[in-house]
Simulated assay, not measured.
Amino acid sequence: MVEAIARATRRIGRRADPLERAMEYGELIAVLQEQVSLVAAERDSAITEVLATVPGMSHRQLATRLGISAQRVDQLAKIARAGGRRPGGHSSE
């Protein structure tokens, strides 16, 4: 995957027209941001599952183990306690 992104970046970089390059880089960024959002949602789902099924692990321990902030784990714990629904009634998925 990383190599595919590198190839796309090199391909775009070979474009002579800077406007064309800027537009194509923008398209690549949009695709990557969408993928990051999807992966983050899956990670968050796994974390809420851990919170529900692994007894005795503190939010701080989980955050340290995953390399994320304790505040993020706290947010996900609140979502999990609300039945997997974000504030305002939106699903976490």
Rank of each mutant, 00 (worst) to 15 (best):
M1A: 12
I5T: 11
I5F: 15
I5V: 15
A6M: 10
A6T: 07
R7L: 12
A8E: 12
T9S: 06
R11Q: 13
R11F: 05
I12K: 02
G13T: 08
R14Y: 04
P18W: 10
P18K: 10
L19A: 12
L19W: 08
E20S: 14
E20R: 15
R21S: 08
R21E: 01
R21L: 04
A22M: 09
A22K: 11
A22R: 14
E27I: 10
L28N: 07
A30D: 13
A30M: 11
V31I: 08
V31Y: 04
V31N: 02
Q33P: 00
Q33I: 01
Q33R: 14
Q33S: 11
Q33D: 14
V36Y: 05
V39M: 13
A41I: 06
A41C: 08
E42N: 10
D44T: 03
S45V: 02
I47D: 02
T48Y: 00
T48L: 04
E49Q: 07
E49S: 07
L51W: 01
T53E: 11
P55V: 01
P55K: 08
P55G: 09
H59R: 06
Q61W: 01
Q61S: 10
Q61K: 09
Q61T: 08
L62A: 08
L62R: 08
T64F: 03
L66I: 07
L66R: 03
G67P: 11
G67A: 08
I68V: 15
S69G: 15
S69L: 04
A70N: 11
A70C: 06
Q71T: 13
V73F: 05
V73P: 00
Q75K: 12
K78H: 03
A80Q: 12
A80L: 01
R81Y: 00
A82D: 11
G83H: 02
G83E: 07
G83W: 02
R86F: 01
H90M: 07
H90N: 02
H90C: 01
S91R: 15
S91I: 02
